[in-house]
Simulated scan of single mutants.
Amino acid sequence: AFDAQQRTAARLSHADQARLILDTGRHGVLCTFGSFGAWKGFPVGTVVEYAMDESGRPVFAFSSLSSHTPDIKADPRCSLTVTAPGYQGMSDARVTLTGTMSLLEDSDIADAKQVFLKKNPGSFWVDFGDFSWFRMETIVTGRLVGGFGRIKQISAEEYLSTGQDPVAGFAQPIASHMNADHADSIVAMVKHYVGIAVQEAKIEGLDRLGLDLQCQSGGKSFSCRLPFIRPAEGRKDVKDVIVEMTRTASAAS
């Protein structure tokens, strides 16, 4: 019954989920083609900071000392892989965005810097003289692995037609508050709306259609999707929906 419920639980489209993971993250693995030394011609992965602009293109600040900077200048083809919040293993979601990188024009740097520092406020080093600004300008394709059996290649057109999820910007504060102060309410909602009893349930992520949970029951840990009773289109909507669901679950227990 649980598996059947999870298969039909309301979720974002593959493209929207990929965009949400990228919007929510701030670190990923950038893969380039090595341009020198023993790495020349081989794919090379490095962990980088990034931020997403409004169009869904990742923006980066790279030092000339970083190995991936000359790689990109020699061959702009690259990919960025990002895991979903709370990623623990192969049953959790991750997305790879593939495209070509471009050095930003001077006229675009101010906007890119603002977006980047909003996501990465401690990255003061972007003002050092050896840093330059880049963006994955051309998106070629995306690949979402949403867990076991949920794998989808996403076309550039599908991906670029997405927008920012209306609740993504404050998902983390809401999740942190619920996990810290209302853990019992999350457990009660799982029992009432999903139909299973769990010892623990933690919000790992949320979007306009529902909550992504990590649950504990009988010594086992597993992921669980808890759909909202209606879509949430803003911060107040999320609060109202969660309050209504917790009250209903509490009254039914």
Results as ranks from 00 to 15, higher is better:
Ala61Val: 02
Asp165Cys: 03
Ser102Tyr: 07
Tyr50Glu: 10
His27Ala: 13
Ala168Gln: 14
Ala112Asp: 03
His192Val: 05
Gly195Lys: 00
Phe170Leu: 14
Glu158Ile: 00
Arg235Asn: 06
Ile203Ala: 12
Asp212Cys: 14
Ser185Ala: 09
Val243Gln: 13
Lys220Val: 14
Leu160Met: 07
Gln5Arg: 09
Lys236Asn: 06
Arg208Met: 10
Ala38Pro: 09
Glu158Trp: 04
Gly41Ile: 06
Gly219Glu: 11
Gly37Tyr: 05
Ile151Lys: 03
Phe116Asn: 03
Arg135His: 04
Arg225Ile: 13
Lys40His: 04
Arg77Val: 09
Trp125Tyr: 04
Gly129Cys: 01
Pro43Asp: 08
Thr248Val: 10
Asp181His: 09
Ala18Ser: 03
Ser176Thr: 15
Gly45Leu: 04
Pro231Ile: 10
Gly25Ile: 00
Tyr193Arg: 00
Gly41Ala: 07
Val44Arg: 12
Met90Leu: 14
Ile21Met: 04
Gln17Leu: 11
Thr96Gln: 10
Lys152Glu: 08
Pro173Ser: 14
Ala175Ser: 15
Asp130Pro: 00
Gln88Arg: 15
Asp106Val: 05
Gly86Glu: 13
Ser185Met: 01
Ile174Phe: 14
Met189Pro: 02
Val59Ser: 04
Phe131Ile: 02
Glu157Thr: 02
Met136Thr: 03
Met178Val: 05
Val29Thr: 04
Pro76Ile: 02
Asp181Ile: 10
Asp111Val: 10
Phe148Asn: 01
